[in-house]
Design a protein around this nucleic acid. Sequence first.
DNA 1: ACGCTATAAGTAGGCTCTCTACATGTACAT
DNA 2: ATGTACATGTAGAGAGCCTACTTATAGCGT
Lengths: 113, 113
Amino acid sequence: MRPDAVRGHLDGLILSVLEDGPRHGYAIIEALQARSGGALDLPTGTVYPALRRLERAGRLSGSWSTVGGRERRTYTLTRAGRHALAAQRADWSEFSSVVEAVLRPPRAAGETS
Amino acid sequence: MRPDAVRGHLDGLILSVLEDGPRHGYAIIEALQARSGGALDLPTGTVYPALRRLERAGRLSGSWSTVGGRERRTYTLTRAGRHALAAQRADWSEFSSVVEAVLRPPRAAGETS
DNA sequence: ACGCTATAAGTAGGCTCTCTACATGTACAT
DNA sequence: ATGTACATGTAGAGAGCCTACTTATAGCGT
């Protein structure tokens, strides 16, 4: 998959992963890989800034903890985040059907559906 | 639909419209509206630069003509454009299934498929 | 002891693309 | 004369993703 394709949809993907329960950044990246069958391998330089952005926007709340000697920032969906996720799903639904409709190859003359 | 959502997919949409045959910019915008049921209403400031970009990239070839006293630049899919369109369709297919897989709400415990 | 890998978080700078807003001009209807 | 549809374009701004790099701990192999 070409790297930039996720643009504009990343927020929804992250929020969706966090719907399962709180996770820290590194675990979110792994969850995205797992759910996508390995197709989504996002660099930390993409995900971490996105998490901070989502936190600033009030869709996530984050808190530090130390596990096994390592610092973690664990993110939890806020109520606003849940609403944003629902909106993202609706957006995706409309967007994908629009792209599908435009991208679908035109039927050749005489071709039946 | 939120305005920016098309990002990264516009090229495919334009190429797809031109698969029907050559069109000029204004007609491309109208065709995108028509195929999307009105959902895609792209500003000229988005489409015209994209057409020039696609032409520079060799996916389209453009030529001027005058119709009814108005200047038109008519774009035609090149062979490379056709290949790019096929690639965009494949990309979309993978991308949408990945987003679908990640975005799909998790099943509640005990819920059957 | 040393190096490598996995885990964990982050920043800086660049780049591409879309959007808003504006500019230009013809044809035609009111 | 004014407005709307047709037709093309540019300038500048902004968002967001990417590459590359930095920092740090834990644990394994040699």
